[in-house]
């Protein structure tokens, strides 16, 4: 039994020797990805997956630790993306301020936090489906507002020509630098989320999730904890929003349309909503399916028009066989692996 707990809770203790081998393999593989893949895979598959994974991670923190399913995370990321385009430089010179990039990035993250906190303030007194409805309403309001506002958001077209800065002489939207940039940001967010679960704040937040009344009786301010969780999630979605606008070079209302908002929820659910690694697994599956499902269908000699059906069916299968997503499948696989005859007696 001791072995199992060691394997299941490897991180966050800052003791490298306790990290199991398969984690090391993944770390080394991720660092070596640019040596054996094309620029397209680094940029468009991994880069995009890391960004979507971070946005989903911010939802995972709220939903997994705090029990609040917020659909406002994509909107917060898009707000950050808009802030980069508006305060920084873009091709729409009449609106963009063209301030130095560190200022634009800091403002962008602050705005993402603000969006999350304001939405949180409206949503924290509700539970379950009502939280979903309120945050979805805020998300769609933002979508329709940006589409019709021309003085600040430049309407339907949005902003194009948003370039990442040239820092240390590196063009950061070249595939390999961008891969490492998004990998670093994703890894930092991931370890932060792992760490957060063990901090007093994280533990209190999980207590609030499990029994808010009891936590309140013990003297914890339930709403303040929930609001703080929104702010923390806002930082991660803000960073992801900045990376998103740098990766595509443009931002428009479609970035935060209803489809992408729901996609973030789907990604989190298929990956596993209870663990920080879940969103990244889900994002990678989503991106690979989005990119290659059409090719798979045509390769099989089927009608390519129905490629969305393949994506939907894959999602349905994952959720049907494992309500807790890919993480759940992995957990069960590991459990089965460990339940070999020699250990059966000890475990049982």
């Amino acid at each position: 039994m001791a072995d199992v707990s060691e394997a299941a809770a490897p991180l966050g203790r800052f003791d490298l020797t306790r990290i199991p081998a398969h984690i090391w393999v993944i770390v080394v593989l991720l660092l070596l990805v640019p040596t054996f893949t094309s620029g397209f895979v680094q940029f468009q598959i991994f880069g995009w997956a890391f960004i979507l994974g971070m946005i989903s991670l911010s939802l995972m923190i709220l939903a997994g630790y705090g029990g609040m399913v917020s659909l406002v995370q994509m909107t917060a990321a898009a707000a950050a993306g808009y802030a980069v385009a508006i305060f920084g430089a873009s091709a729409v010179a009449e609106i963009s301020f063209a301030w130095p990039w560190p200022v634009a990035v800091i403002l962008a993250i602050a705005i993402s936090v603000l969006v999350c906190v304001i939405s949180g303030a409206l949503a924290i007194r509700t539970e379950g489906i009502y939280t979903i409805m309120i945050t979805l309403a805020i998300g769609s309001a933002f979508f329709y507002f940006t589409r019709q506002n021309y003085t600040v958001f430049n309407g339907f077209t949005g902003f194009n020509g948003v370039q990442p800065p040239q820092v240390f002489g590196v063009t950061w939207n070249d595939p390999t630098p961008f891969y490492y940039l998004t990998l670093a940001c994703a890894a930092l967010s991931y370890f932060f989320a792992v760490y957060l679960a063990r901090t007093p704040f994280g533990l209190a937040l999980q207590g609030v999730r499990d029994n808010p009344r009891r936590m309140a009786a013990m003297g914890y301010n339930v709403n303040a904890h929930r609001l703080a969780a929104y702010a923390v999630a806002g930082v991660i979605s803000g960073v992801a929003g900045v990376l998103l606008v740098w990766s595509t070079g443009q931002i428009s209302p479609n970035t935060a349309a209803i489809g992408p908002i729901i996609d973030i929820l789907v990604i989190t659910v298929i990956g596993g909503i209870n663990r920080p690694i879940g969103p990244f697994v889900g994002a990678l599956i989503y991106v690979v399916l989005r990119t290659y499902s059409l090719d798979v269908l045509t390769a099989l000699g089927l009608d390519g028009e129905r490629f969305k059906l393949l994506i939907g069916m894959a999602f349905l299968l994952i959720v049907y066989f494992s309500p807790d997503g890919m993480c759940g499948i992995w957990d069960r696989y590991i459990t089965r692996l460990w339940r070999d005859p020699k250990r059966e007696g000890a475990d049982g």
Partner: peptide, 13 residues
């Protein structure tokens, strides 16, 4: 899907 973002992703691929 008519959004510039989707066009960019499709073209990149």
């Amino acid at each position: 899907d008519a959004s510039p973002e989707s066009a960019l992703r499709a073209a990149r691929k």
